[in-house]
């Protein structure tokens, strides 16, 4: 008898891999647009990680005579910026800070916001009302304004920018977490778990988390592009990353004076921001539809 039991656990393990995530993956692969977006996003991440090996030149090394060289100048495939630094290298290195400012605040906000939202959604009642109305106060500010206000109060710098962006993203993530949890909580398998005598903590851990984290995560992915654009905006205003660091928003800011001289050059950081945000957005859209189980 014990070896039958072992067989069955073994079999259960095999069957598990055929479960939910596998079907999500199959459906995701069928969505060509999302797969392309995913590849672009992955490429950008790799580019950021391997920047020192890919970049042809030092992003901080300027040359006065090469200032504002056009795209295609020898030795400067994408031209040089207003201080004669190689544009291609700066764009590659810029991915590091820009992606960092796009992803990290969202990840922190995902952790904090989900915890708040799931607790509020599962407990319901007055706990929910108080928590969500408090967050609504923050949510009522336009996100750009809130980020500028917090960054402005704390002063310029990467960490302060990170903090302000995190604060901006907690309320919307908590809201999504709360609404997803509230809808899951009403389902009968939660009632069945309650009828089993399990504690709220056990129910949330075993029955709620697995069913709500996916949708919340997809929503958070869509915020990555927003975070990048906000970070770029902060840098543009001189509140986020400070020169001479390479960051796309900051580059857009410093090159704006050159827009009449070298418009294509000045547009390059904007193209990178656009490319990143659209690929992350389409990736999250694809994930959302792949995770949508219609029975």
């Amino acid at each position: 008898m014990p070896d039958t039991a072992a067989n069955i656990t073994e079999l259960a393990k095999i069957e598990r891999s055929h479960g939910y995530w596998r079907s999500v993956w199959t459906r995701f692969l069928r969505d060509k647009v999302a797969v392309c977006a995913g590849l672009v996003a992955a490429g950008l991440v790799l580019m950021a990680i391997f920047a020192p090996w890919i970049a042809p030149a030092d992003p901080l090394d300027g040359s006065m005579i090469k200032r504002l060289s056009p795209i295609g100048t020898e030795g400067y495939p994408l031209g040089a910026d207003e201080l004669g630094r190689d544009m291609l290298s700066r764009l590659i290195y810029g991915a590091r800070l820009s992606l960092f400012m796009g992803v990290v605040p969202v990840l922190i906000a995902f952790a904090i916001g989900s915890a708040i939202g799931i607790a509020a959604g599962y407990l319901g009642g007055w706990v929910n009302t108080i928590t969500m109305r408090t967050l609504d106060v923050l949510y009522a500010f336009p996100s750009v304004l809130l980020a500028i206000a917090i960054s402005g109060a704390l002063g310029a710098g990467i960490l302060n920018g990170l903090l302000s962006l995190t604060v901006v993203f907690i309320p919307p993530i908590a809201r999504v977490a709360e609404s997803v949890t509230t809808s899951v909580r009403k389902l009968e398998y939660i009632e069945a778990a309650q009828a089993s005598g399990a504690s709220s903590f056990q129910i949330v851990r075993q029955h709620v988390l697995g069913n709500v984290l996916g949708p919340i995560f997809v929503y958070a992915t869509s915020l990555i592009s927003v975070s990048m654009i906000l970070a770029a905006g902060l840098s543009f205003l001189g509140l986020g990353v400070s020169p001479p660091n390479a960051e796309w928003g900051l580059m857009l800011n410093t090159l704006r004076n050159a827009i009449y001289v070298q418009p294509w050059l000045a547009a390059l950081p904007g193209v990178m921001i656009f490319l990143t945000s659209i690929s992350f957005n389409m990736l999250s859209d694809g994930l959302r539809s792949a995770m949508d189980v219609k029975q």
Binding site: I8, A12, E15, R16, G19, Y20, L187, E188, Y189, E191, A192, A193, A195, Q206, H207, G210, N211, V293, Q295
Partner: peptide
């Protein structure tokens, strides 16, 4: 104990039957 009407909604979609 209780058994509910909606057999699908009463099972956690991420849990194996065992």
């Amino acid at each position: 104990q209780m058994v509910f009407q909606d057999s699908f909604a009463s099972l956690n979609p991420r849990m194996t039957m065992i």
